[in-house]
Design a protein around this nucleic acid. Structure first.
Lengths: 198, 198
DNA sequence: GTCTATACGGCGATAGAC
DNA sequence: GTCTATCGCCGTATAGAC
């Protein structure tokens, strides 16, 4: 609790909730856990946010907003070659997820448990626009499905190893080995994506 | 409730629990929901299973056991060519998941929320053995990591589209279109896997 | 803004009648 | 085997003192 000393109380609450919701999901988190993690009283949570669901929405919004920020920049560039863009996009996405490996499981679990949240927070729009951007960037305008397939392959291959990390740890029997394996995969992703566009 | 008329009560309970746990996760399911779905009284659940956790373990075991059954047969075959095996394995895995698209989200969510369950139910052993089998089948014995990467690519690319179906539905705006997209992906998976082994 | 106390319903689990 | 009734706890949310 309270690695969050320099923040405002509201910020401490959200950051604590973020940590907990990502690990345990909406249903797995108790308001008491959030209060303890933030180092404040349980009643105080309701002063800043009316309900548990309100805290959750703010968290989901923050997490999903940060997901594609770097990709947008790369896909908007006009100078880089296709190979460079693929390499940078893969690195960028791996980096984002490395910083918190629970992000993909969190987003995917919750979009399946409460699908309404996608439109409610405009996540579908974010994804549609990043795919369109990728389409332009790689001159795939003719077949719009190709852009979606490309994006889907990038996300699938990059996110999945992080999502099954607990399983990989058991299978390899060594967390260091797992980490090494995941980093090896980066190159496989790049190679696959390049193959896809030729 | 009770699409499960010809079953024993115990079977009705497990099948109802399976449906609900897969959709909502362990924390998202109430014993009352299981009872209603099975068409029995809430108290009766505890006659057949001591606790909610006991029901859950039985469900997780059943779901995870059925996951790789078909793959084992294919990887054990001695006559098929590599290309045939890849094609059949991909089809088989897609088929399994098509029958219940919540399976991958369920397995992955729960392995992250309660990692102990992997060893407890021997899921890690199952995965280790299927990877070894794939290694032999594709003569990847020299570099054992290659078998793991191959398996990971198969699973990632196949399962992911089903896991993000709610998002695809919003992005395409048309559930039929999503279904079509997912079936298109089967061919991409096969092509990617073949590229990987050459 | 922050805390204490409490309302009020829902939860998993058990006891016991049939 | 199945149901009813109920226990004891824990959940979110609110009211009100400081």
């Amino acid at each position: 609790m309270s690695y969050f000393c320099a923040m405002t109380t509201k910020e401490k609450i959200i950051e604590s909730a973020k940590l907990l919701f990502m690990k345990h999901g909406f249903e797995g988190v108790r308001m008491q856990m959030v209060a303890d993690e933030a180092g404040v009283n349980k009643g105080l949570l309701h002063y800043y946010y009316k309900t548990k669901a309100a805290i959750f929405k703010e968290v989901f919004n923050r997490v999903s907003s940060g997901l594609f920020a770097n990709l947008e920049k790369i896909f908007s560039d006009n100078i880089l070659t296709i190979d460079q863009k693929i390499s940078m996009a893969t690195d960028a996405y791996f980096n984002i997820i490395s910083q918190n490996r629970y992000v993909p499981v969190f987003i995917i679990s919750e979009m399946n448990r409460q699908p309404k949240i996608l439109k409610e927070l405009g996540f579908d729009e974010k994804v549609r626009s990043i795919i369109q951007l990728a389409g332009k960037s790689f001159s795939m305008d003719k077949s719009p499905d190709l852009a979606l397939h490309f994006f889907l392959t990038l996300i699938s291959l990059s996110a999945f190893p992080f999502m099954v990390t607990p399983l990989l740890n058991e299978v390899t029997g060594d967390n260091k080995k797992t980490e090494h394996l995941i980093m090896e995969r980066k190159e496989i992703v790049k190679k696959t994506l390049k193959n896809m566009l030729t």
